[in-house]
Amino acid sequence: MPELPDVEGFRRVLAAHAVGRRIRTVDVLDAGVLRGVTGAGLRRALTGRRFRQPWRHGKYLVVPVAGSRAGAAVLLHFGMTGSLEWEVDAERQRFDRVVFGFAHGELRFRDMRKLHGLRYAPDRETVKRLLARLGPDAADLSAAGLSDRLAGRRGQVKPALMDQSTVAGLGNLLADEILWRARIDPHRPCPQLDDSDLRRLHTRMRTVLRQSVEAGRVPPRKTWLTGRRDDPTGSCPRCGTTLSHGRVGGRGTAWCSQCQPR
């Protein structure tokens, strides 16, 4: 499931291989991933153009299009199964949906489930409008900013962290990992978080994001909760207690009842 670290990895792929190169072809192999634009419209907008340096906001990758005074951009959201791949002389895969062709390779938007997809924004105002509902990017959020974003929330802390309008970029794996490291039960109501909890939560969030971005994903290391959560008999990497599993905010959740007491 792509979360902030994965999207940062996709940004690096695009920046390394496609920025500044002329887009020779735009092959829409499955228009089911397009949002607000047709295949023909996307081809007209991008063929012969060049991508500029991409940037990320939460789980969105924004790719400006060079030569557009209005600030046009392509926006990619990878849903639960999407990715961005650079391929040279490789057969196209079953789930390649949109392929941007360059002189020496192809940039492929690949997605099995097609839950979100690709948008074309013809100007800066459209980009702003499409991102307006998002909260601050989790990697840029200060301790005071996190406290402010959670202030007034009455629900449980895990769903609050995963609400993209509150904090952009955190998904299921990141939320569980951060809460485990901060020793905060995912069920705890936000009003019960004191200043010490919030400072610890922010510190652990920064650490998890930094290490995950370096790895290009949320790494399934055995010293991390994410490395043991899928094992029904998995134990806490910190204290050895068998992990608890359940649903919080409708999402499958793992936590340690010893390290994260209610």
Rank of each mutant, 00 (worst) to 15 (best):
R110L: 01
L141K: 13
E125G: 15
T126Y: 00
L75C: 05
V99H: 07
A132L: 10
R149E: 03
A70M: 04
E91Q: 13
R119E: 04
E87D: 11
H77I: 02
P136D: 03
A66Q: 14
L118A: 01
A72E: 08
K128I: 03
K114M: 08
A143M: 05
D137Y: 08
A143V: 14
G135D: 11
D140L: 14
R124H: 10
D111A: 05
M80P: 04
K114A: 03
F102W: 11
L131E: 10
V74G: 03
F109W: 12
V98L: 04
S83Y: 00
R97P: 02
L141W: 12
V127W: 06
A66Y: 01
D137S: 12
W86C: 03
E87Q: 14
R113L: 07
V65L: 11
S68E: 10
D89K: 15
R108F: 04
L130D: 12
S68H: 13
A132V: 09
L115N: 06
A66G: 11
E87G: 01
D137G: 08
V74I: 13
D111S: 10
R97E: 05
V74A: 01
F109I: 08
K114Q: 12
L131H: 11
F78T: 04
P122N: 06
L118I: 11
G135Y: 09
S68T: 14
V99L: 09
E125W: 07
G145H: 09
R154D: 03
A70H: 12
R94I: 03
L118V: 14
R113I: 03
F78V: 03
G101F: 05
V127P: 12
E91R: 15
V74S: 02
A132E: 14
L141M: 14
S83H: 07
F102E: 12
P64T: 09
A70P: 02
V98C: 05
P64L: 00
A103T: 15
F109G: 07
A73S: 15
R94T: 13
A151V: 01
P122I: 08
M80E: 01
A132Y: 06
F102D: 10
L75D: 02
F102C: 10
D89H: 13
A138Q: 10
V99C: 06
T81H: 05
R133F: 09
A72K: 12
E106V: 12
A73H: 08
G152T: 11
L75I: 15
W86R: 08
G67L: 03
V99S: 04
K114V: 04
R94G: 00
L141V: 14
F95L: 06
E85W: 10
Y120C: 00
G79Q: 08
A139K: 15
R108E: 00
G152Y: 07
F95W: 15
L84D: 06
F102Q: 11
S147L: 02
R108K: 11
F95R: 08
A132K: 15
Y120R: 04
L107K: 13
H116E: 13
A144N: 11
R92N: 05
M112F: 05
R69G: 15
M80D: 00
F95G: 00
G145D: 04
F109Q: 08
H116Q: 14
V99F: 05
G135L: 09
F95P: 02
A66H: 11
G101N: 08
E125T: 14
G155A: 09
F78S: 03
L76P: 02
L75Y: 06
D123H: 15
K114F: 01
H116P: 00
L76C: 13
R153G: 02
A151I: 00
L107F: 06
L131P: 11
A121T: 10
